[in-house]
Simulated assay, not measured.
Amino acid sequence: GNQLHRIIPDGCIDIIVDRLSPSNWKAAFVEGVMTRFEVLNLSEAQSLFGIRFFSEAAQSFLHDPLSAFMGQHVFLEEIWGMEG
């Protein structure tokens, strides 16, 4: 059945990897600092893992200012190219 999962903003930046993604290009993304909570409706099997960074640490490896990632997700390939 469907499961609702609430994600609360915590001031961190995450790299999320979707292990079931049909595309390598869209399998990993940066989830920027959230500006509001989100509710995910998990109706299918998921296989995700994430790495959480405090904002100060994330700035050291992201090429753009953190404000460029605010409230959105950006695929790693868009940031680091094919190496991402």
Rank of each mutant, 00 (worst) to 15 (best):
I16S: 02
S60V: 04
I51V: 15
L62D: 00
A27Q: 09
T35R: 09
P9K: 05
L62W: 00
S67L: 05
V33K: 00
S60Q: 10
M70Q: 13
E78Y: 03
F54D: 14
A45S: 10
R36M: 10
A57T: 09
F37Y: 11
W80C: 04
Q3I: 13
H73F: 15
E83H: 04
D64K: 06
S43W: 12
F49L: 14
R52D: 01
V39K: 09
Q59K: 11
L42P: 01
Q46C: 15
Q46H: 09
L42S: 03
L40H: 14
V17G: 01
G81T: 08
G84M: 10
A28M: 04
G1R: 03
Q59W: 01
R6P: 00
R19F: 03
F29V: 02
R52S: 10
L48P: 05
E56I: 02
D18R: 04
E44F: 08
R19C: 13
F75V: 05
G11V: 08
L20A: 05
M82D: 07
F53C: 02
E31L: 13
K26G: 04
A68R: 11
E77R: 14
G81S: 09
D10N: 14
N24G: 10
A45E: 11
G81E: 11
L40K: 15
A27I: 02
G11M: 06
G50W: 14
I51P: 03
E77M: 07
G32Y: 08
I7P: 01
S47E: 15
M34L: 15
L42C: 09
N24D: 09
P65D: 09
H5D: 10
L4Y: 06
S43G: 11
S60Y: 04
V30W: 00
M34S: 12
L20Q: 13
I7S: 08
F75Y: 14
H5C: 07
H5Q: 07
F75D: 04
I51W: 05
G81I: 06
N2A: 09
L66F: 02
D14M: 04
R36T: 14
D14T: 04
I7M: 08
E78Q: 10
E83M: 11
D10I: 10
K26E: 14
